[in-house]
């Protein structure tokens, strides 16, 4: 057995052991990351779109009501708000946009949708309800200066 061979083995031993542990840990960590990320993504996606779909069908249902009553009010403020509200909601992404293709200002769009919904409620003579999720997001972002995309913190590789 040559002396050189033994030395080389010893030099790499530490790294080899570390690497084998790292690989095993990485695989296990990935499972945890996927699980935890998935749980958070499910919840956030639900919160956001529960609110948006509320506005969407609220507006659509009122549109149907006016149509069925034979009151085509295309030129009224109600119809105007409904049209704009539906248009804004259609721009809201249903998948998490990455930073590269995200010219979209989510917070701005959320605020526009909420104010348009409030305006519609006002013309209908109703008290707005169900404004919740994205308003909380707005507050969070204002307090913590988090980027206005759905990003998990503490990971620079994301987006």
């Amino acid at each position: 057995m040559s002396q050189d061979f033994d030395l080389e083995t010893l030099v790499h031993l530490e790294q080899t052991l570390y690497d084998s542990g790292y690989q095993e840990g990485f695989a296990h960590g990935r499972i945890h990351g996927l699980i935890e990320g998935r749980a958070l993504g499910r919840e956030k996606g639900f919160e956001l779109w529960e609110e948006l779909a509320f506005y969407e069908t609220f507006a659509l249902t009122w549109k149907t009501i006016y149509t069925s009553l034979g009151r085509e009010e295309d030129k009224t403020r109600k119809a105007h708000h409904i049209r704009h509200l539906l248009d804004l909601i259609s721009q809201f992404p249903q998948v998490n946009p990455s930073a590269s293709d995200s010219e979209l200002d989510i917070l701005k769009l959320s605020r526009q949708i909420q104010s348009r919904y409030r305006a519609l409620c006002s013309t209908l003579g109703l008290k707005p309800s169900n404004i919740r999720a994205s308003e909380a997001d707005t507050l969070d972002a204002a307090q913590t200066n988090v980027e206005p995309v759905w990003k998990i913190e503490n990971d620079q590789t994301m987006f």
């Binding site: 840990g25 960590g29 990320g37 998935r38 749980a39 993504g41 919840e43 956030k44 998948v95 994301m158």
Partner: peptide
């Protein structure tokens, strides 16, 4: 490794849960 693996997969999991279920 476990920390790096977790961080590498959080966003992937988030995006999956967001679009697929939430």
């Amino acid at each position: 490794g476990i920390t790096a693996g977790k961080e590498s997969a959080l966003q992937e999991g988030f995006d999956d849960g967001f679009a697929g279920v939430g």
